[in-house]
Design a protein around this nucleic acid. Structure first.
Lengths: 231, 231
DNA sequence: AGCTATCTGACACTATTCTGACAATTCAGG
DNA sequence: CCTGAATTGTCAGAATAGTGTCAGATAGCT
């Protein structure tokens, strides 16, 4: 089982320590920071399964942090901690892309429960679905047998990572999958290969599937973001 | 866009009616039942995108219903309504496979928000992608695919920063977004480009979306402040 | 060990982003 | 209503960061 990483953003030192300790006792690896700027910095440098974000922060409030993260097209679940119990705040937060929130004062057990749910959900969505075969042009991919068959009957065996990444892109057909998401899903946090590695896989997909690999019709690169598969 | 179906299980008639009405006003199709047995019957007969489940029910309590459902189908999100505010209850419910819960008395707006989150999560990527679009005149922006499609079928791929800034302006539709805010959000503190850069993006938005780029109807410049998008 | 899959670093290449110049516009104050 | 200062519009390259490509290194399996 992989280690789950949490980014915790909270400016009250005492609370920060308490939450951090408790999450660590649950087996999570916690990066704790005290303001919005540091949060964004960490967010860029590391990969997290969940972000726990206080709304009231110095420098930059939680909503702004959330908005910035969502602009980056990231799907990390975000759990808000809010002191204000007003409706506008909740509506605001949730509309801006939060996945859950807790109103202070909350008890730690409840936080841990919600953290657990959000983390579990993230893993589930990253799991491979029941999709078994897919046809691109003349070729058919069988995700179960890792085989790629052409119309003329020739077969190639795909490797494990080739298959995983291909499946990810096809499942998200039409949508851009960020490099970050690719790493999270295919490499599962246990290793961060250089970004060249991802390109290598795309390179081979283009060789397999594109008539003219220089002008790809299926495997598009979105500069600065990631890749997108289209039919 | 498909209709989202919700199974609502609640024994207090008044509350049941109130919730049902509100969810229907949000565009959901609601099947409302008053006890656990009926709930399981409906669950077997129909397919739902979400189940809203009171814990205190005659015949069979909510946890039992949840447990039974999870034995058959682990996918449907379940939202618990609970009157008791004790920890054991929460732990119990969440461990048994709930995805969220609300403690009574809750306000309806909050319920609707949480319902929205749970439903959205259950949608497939193609469906999520459809939610991730915005239409300006004849053109449609898809923020998931970074595409801009015209009515005539032509498509343009937007770049990363184009998409980010566009998203920011549209999220703040009708409000002026200051240049400073734009820099903070899109450029994320890591670099402050000259103010010409922002203009360049506005320039291209006007080319994309305005009939008469000299007299913009959507992308307005507010002298000394920033820009404003309007419909 | 031997084989294959995966990864890295180097280099070329190019799309995107940025800048600087100048034109056009707006606005305040005379 | 004019004038000058400040801000924005526009555009043509320059600068930069991200990608394509490949050969060889490394890691991991049988």
């Amino acid at each position: 089982m992989q280690i789950n990483r949490i980014l915790l953003v909270e400016d009250e030192e005492h609370l920060l320590e308490a939450i951090k300790l408790n999450l660590e006792l649950e087996g999570y690896q916690v990066t704790a920071v005290t303001d919005g700027k540091k949060a964004l910095k960490s967010f860029k440098e590391e990969r997290f399964n969940l972000i726990v974000l206080d709304v009231m922060l110095p420098e930059m409030n939680g909503f702004q942090v959330c908005e910035t993260i969502r602009l980056e097209n990231s799907e990390v679940p975000i759990l808000f901690l809010t002191a204000k119990n007003t409706n506008e705040d909740r509506v605001n937060g949730l509309r801006k892309g939060a996945d859950d929130y807790l109103v202070k004062p909350f008890n730690l057990e409840e936080l841990i429960l919600r953290v657990g749910i959000l983390i579990k959900r993230g893993l589930k969505s990253a799991e491979v679905s029941a999709l078994n075969t897919y046809t691109i042009g003349e070729k058919e991919i069988n995700f179960g047998s890792f085989e790629l068959s052409s119309k003329d009957g020739t077969k190639i065996t795909l490797t494990k990572k080739e298959t995983m990444l291909l499946k990810l892109l096809i499942e998200r057909k039409g949508q851009v999958v960020s490099r970050e998401q690719i790493l999270e899903t295919v490499w599962n946090y246990d290793r961060y290969p250089s970004t060249r590695t991802i390109d290598n896989f795309i390179l081979s997909y283009r060789k397999y599937f594109e008539d003219d690999p220089r002008n790809p019709r299926h495997f598009h690169s979105i500069r600065g973001v990631g890749y997108k598969f289209t039919d």
